[in-house]
Design a protein around this nucleic acid. Structure first.
Lengths: 253, 253
DNA sequence: AATCCACATTTGTCCAATCAAATATACACG
DNA sequence: CGTGTATATTTGATTGGACAAATGTGGATT
């Protein structure tokens, strides 16, 4: 048995300190001690409470950030709480700006491609002309960090890019990121819109949600030198969608 | 313009140091400077090379670990390289033990369910009797961290658990983790096998790979108090399967 | 009243150092 | 020659401190 040194004044310390702090904070978040959207105590306050250094607290907070419980920003008035990333995902965004950001830094999983003729409303939204033929690429999207949240994506691409789409399907298979592959230069984001809407039945069925679930509909339009490339609708449901499978729980730890 | 302090002796330092170190190391990995499977230089060596502290190097290495480029272990003879997590994923495992671990801590995305009658070989592998009816649940699996790798999964569940499977499909929709939902207590892992095989055409098609791609086939059998619950085959391809979409690159940063 | 600037606060980045834990190596011993 | 133990090496965890950068606040100015 190693001799107890001055570092560990707590004999119950089996796990590292930052992990114990992390666990305590997770329990508090689950219990609602820090309401959703509120500010967490500052690092210095937490360090004082747990009688440890700021670094150790930062280590715990880093893991909470990775898990999506909190968001952090440099400067004052930081750290926004999201209680549980599985159940209250949409509210966990720091701002719409952050939601837009997250909607791009994601994994895109191809589902299927079909051709559509734009009607007036759709043409207006994606930036095309009514009557034009476009590709409609549907799929599913996992957001960072940790791939915890998910949404349904519909991307629209002008039919004149048929070669590119076909090449992607041939060579890349079902998994590819449209934008990264198509971007031959910097992209100007022409339009960003967001609306709260009821999910279309098609979307909720794909995501396995109850009919009529509510979602944030996120429209983005990208343009390169060649013209409008892609318009995408992301449907962010407010519900719980994915589960983590943790071996610790399976083993009853 | 802030006055240049003693900290930054490098005027080209726009990004934080650890990010620059991270970038340099990533380039080296991509260029093959550190061969696959080899040991990276020690933290102290890197700190000496980059003329910084061990702390800063650790910060860079932490990000490389998060991205799946390297694995780390406490003690001597650590850090195994995997050059590029997109292309040479399978070799990046530190050990088979780690592969087994990762195969559980994943996202499971449901694909479809069908009934099968076990033949002799399959019965022996999943732990059932030839002629029994089982459910075959196929899907796709994203591994942690970061959801970078992917594999095809076939799970087998005895037909006597039909109620549980039906309930999952009804209430949970296409996304659920079988084990977490079924486990009413600790799980004993009865069998763990691994083989290098050519992918069946069905699997490679689903994953969008060329016919005849090689994969590691990973068999696991779980047992609870109620008997054998689930047997699963994970097909880990050695190929590139997913892409990250990063807004920085899109903007030409 | 609106705007701009100085200041305080908080987090990001970084350093130097220490001890603990894990691991490999070398040496002693049977 | 095989085995086990002592030792050195390396990473993990932690402290305390320092400065930079971002952000909110309040006061001064127009």
């Amino acid at each position: 048995m190693p001799p107890s040194k001055s570092i560990s004044d707590d004999p119950t310390a089996a796990a590292p300190r930052y992990q114990r702090i992390q666990r305590v904070l997770e329990e508090r978040l689950a219990a609602g001690a820090y309401p959703l959207g509120s500010l967490m105590p500052t690092e210095i306050e937490l360090a004082s409470e747990f009688e440890t250094s700021r670094f150790t607290v930062r280590e715990a907070l880093r893991h909470l950030t990775d898990r999506g419980y909190i968001t952090r920003k440099q400067g004052m008035g930081t750290r926004v709480v999201s209680t549980d990333p599985k159940t209250e995902y949409v509210q966990s965004f720091d701002s719409l700006e952050e939601l837009f950001q997250i909607a791009v830094e994601t994994w895109f999983v191809f589902h299927e491609t079909s051709k559509v003729v734009l009607d007036a409303e759709l043409a207006g939204r994606v930036g095309g002309q009514a009557g034009e033929e476009w590709f409609k690429v549907t799929g599913v999207r996992w957001t960072q960090p940790g791939g915890r949240a998910i949404c349904h994506v519909q991307s629209y691409i002008p039919a004149r890019y048929a070669d590119a789409v076909a090449a992607l399907e041939d060579h890349e298979g079902p998994f590819f990121s449209l934008l990264e592959r198509h971007a031959d230069g910097p992209i100007d984001e022409v339009v960003q819109e967001i609306r709260a809407v009821a999910m279309p039945a098609e979307i909720s069925r794909t995501l396995g949600l109850a009919n009529g679930s509510w979602a944030l509909q996120l429209l983005r339009r990208y343009r390169t030198a060649g013209g409008v490339l892609i318009a995408s609708f992301n449907w962010h449901p407010a519900d719980q969608l994915t589960y983590t499978m943790r071996i610790e729980r399976l083993r009853g730890a």
